[in-house]
Design a protein around this nucleic acid. Structure first.
Length: 123
RNA sequence: CUGGAAGGGCGGAGGAUCGCUUCCGGCGCAAGCCGGGGGAGGAAAGUCCGAACUCCACAGGGCGCGAUGCCGCGUAACCGGAAGUUUGUUCUUCCGGAUACACGCGGGAGGUGACGGCGCGAGCCGUCCCGACGGAUAGUGCCACAGAAAAUUAAACCGCCGCGGACUUCGGUCAGCGGCAAGGGUGAAAAGGUGCGGUAAGAGCGCACCGCUCCAAGCGCAAGCGCGGAGGCACGGAAAACCCCAUCGGGUGCAAGGCCAAAUAGGAAACCGAGGCGCGGCCCGCGCCGGGUUUCGCGCAAGCGGGACAGGUUUCGGGUACUGGCUGCUCAGACAAAUGAUUCUCUCCGCGUCGCAAGGCGUGCAGACAGAAUUCGGCUUACAGCUCUUCCAGAAUC
RNA sequence: GCCCCCGUAGCUCAAAUGGAUAGAGCAAUCGUUUCCUAAACGAUGGAUUCCGGUUCAAUUCCGGACGGGGGUA
């Protein structure tokens, strides 16, 4: 059913959170953990659904080129590690200021630390 | 060769794997899958100008408001026409329009800022630089402080000169009545300047020269320049104060505006025509309301759509870098917003290190500024490094 | 994306149509008082966001840049 079962690591547009009400629902009702460059809000989904991701990069982060890069880093991180999740999630990642100078491995380690702390990773 | 100034050009190349997005073709009931093509910039930025396009009313007239203001030439998207081409209202080329009160280039007043030259001097000439440049004689107001006086019959504070008078130590002193714009002083600015004559002292009062104003041969498409002549000289500054004159501008902005399956609330649209109410900043004017007739559609979120032709290849011509044709590929289109991640090779540059050197090794996100959002032209700002042209300075060589 | 506003000491505000020393409160520093601190009193320093232009003269007028804030589906 889900692409995770086939081992592929795609991230098409259908897996993105687009609506403002979805964002505000997750920010208000979801679990929340912040670590270094990332804040995560999430809600667990039933096992037959696919995970969805939304990314928030505020204007305080910097100009457009900086915000775009932060968004791409967070999206790439989620794409590479989506199959390691124990259950599907609706997830919102918020970039913090410290992400600006970081490279992909740093962001990956921050993300995995949060997911491990939340007990969301497969053992 | 090194450094500086001004003005141009470029802003890595090729590949692999994993992703995103769009178009075309194929498969599939569909979700989607497979193959192929495309996928950020010179500033995409700031949103400072202007234009296209959109709807509001057909965008028209007046008032108000805003903008622009020497002259000439040039220019985009867009619009129209013709020819060729295409399944096509597709695409290409040419011609014309559109327009500048966007902007670019050139020129001319002006400033007299910098340097140089000429002249006793006032001043003039040359080179470079700046150059938002209608009107101060349409009117109203302003020019602080200082100064006697700050703008129109200019003006006597210190002065200069004359007259008669008083006093006198016979040098002059004092007050009075007149004349004078030369000198001093104030100021950003004091009502032409330099000299000679003239005079009681002075004054364009007279003369020469310089400047100014007016006329003007001739030159230039024009702004304008100006041979020559006339006038004793009038006209302070500021319109980036209000304002006057001329010209231009209606507002709105792709979050404009258009189409629409399903669901929800129950109305909505078109036409007819007396009255009431409202609306561009305001008016002419226009819109809305209730009534009748006809029709089934409208608003909101989603979706569709508005939405894209600018570069590269080959070769030819003209040039200082470059640029124009020919050929011919067909090429971003998202909407919590694609254009990314990892990595290899090659060159460029910086740093470290080894080496006499050539170069080797290591290191730094190809290393700067920066990410399309309706389109086009311009302006401005940011920018590692490479590179070209011209000029200037220094060093070396002939 | 599009459309609008605003910039004066460290902070909050002045300076009416340009005119000379840019002012006030709080804060800061120093001193007096006190055994010490606070309060009080006295004194001091500190600013027109930046770059050009107009003008004799610019916080004020004009142009540009920079920074900050707001509206709009």
């Amino acid at each position: 059913m889900s692409e995770g079962a086939s081992g592929r690591l795609g991230f098409p547009r259908a897996m993105r959170i687009k609506h403002g009400r979805d964002f505000s629902r997750l920010r208000r009702q979801g679990q929340r953990i912040a670590y270094r460059s990332v804040i995560a809000n999430w809600i667990e989904l039933p096992a037959d659904k696919t995970s969805r991701l939304g990314v928030i990069t505020t204007k305080a982060l910097g100009p457009a080129v900086v915000r775009s890069r932060a968004r791409r880093l967070l999206r790439e991180t989620f794409r590479l590690h989506q199959n390691e999740l124990r259950v599907p999630l609706e997830l919102v990642l918020v970039a913090r200021n410290s992400i600006v100078e970081k490279k992909l491995p740093d962001v990956e380690s921050d993300f995995l630390k949060i997911m491990r702390q939340a007990g969301m990773l497969k053992s």
